[in-house]
Design a protein around this nucleic acid. Sequence first.
DNA 1: CACACTAATGCATCATGTTGCAAATAGTAA
DNA 2: TTACTATTTGCAACATGATGCATTAGTGTG
Lengths: 143, 143
Amino acid sequence: MRKHKDLLAVLRHNRQRVTPARRFLLQFFIDNHGRSLSLPEIQTFLQDRLPGINRSSIYRNLEMLKTLSIVQELRVDRKGRHYQFVFERPVHHFIICKACGKVSKGKRNFFEQVERALQDIHDFKKANLSVTFYGFCSRCRSD
Amino acid sequence: MRKHKDLLAVLRHNRQRVTPARRFLLQFFIDNHGRSLSLPEIQTFLQDRLPGINRSSIYRNLEMLKTLSIVQELRVDRKGRHYQFVFERPVHHFIICKACGKVSKGKRNFFEQVERALQDIHDFKKANLSVTFYGFCSRCRSD
DNA sequence: CACACTAATGCATCATGTTGCAAATAGTAA
DNA sequence: TTACTATTTGCAACATGATGCATTAGTGTG
């Protein structure tokens, strides 16, 4: 489980400066590591603590965290991105039920099978930080 | 291989009306079935033939074609969506090389393995029309 | 602690998507 | 053909996301 201090070290190691916005952002992700956070929810949180923070700063910081593989971006539906804290490595795929909206983390087993198939069949390697699958979970199916 | 006339039938069957914009759009996809079309390219094409056509009509029509599984939307990079005509069934996954940008259609074999893993391991079914994988193809790797 | 260097922020502006509503138009039946 | 109805379109307004640039503020050094 990754801690706030460790993450600040990751930033510094990548020549990224530790600003107030980034501290709050990381803390927010850590405190909610079990679930993915919607963009509005992140915005509200930050604007609460740093009144007047600019939209573009939020976008740019989330983009940066993505680049450093600290968070993953998911598209839950057409509008609305979510951000998932990568709190353990290696990262996983995500599976979203189109009916109930539940976001599940793909099992390691699944991740490995997909990666292996990608490499064996298509000669693609170390392809993804994550892939998001949309489907219907067993509870939302009648069959 | 799906023909213009067949696609119009699909529209009608789904109570979608056949408008000039939709005729042109479908023809454009058919004429370029080998590759995915960027949104700007689609816009230019339509605005050429239907001067004054509104942005929202284009978005709405592409959305409709997605819903009917006539096209698939791909995100090639952060900005910029592409649309891929589903010219044969069953549909496939797509694999995009982050280095050279090449869009490959996933092999049937790969598609099946992924779907099977998704079902066996996560009990998700008939999950996706398509999934897009990002990675590095053999030509862009040094190993 | 003060300074210099560079990266991050705010701001303004632009680009891209979305949405509600009135007007236009495709499908349908007489 | 005409008239009717429901869908699609254009439009306007809004929401979201991206970008160049001047200013501000972290960070390392002396």
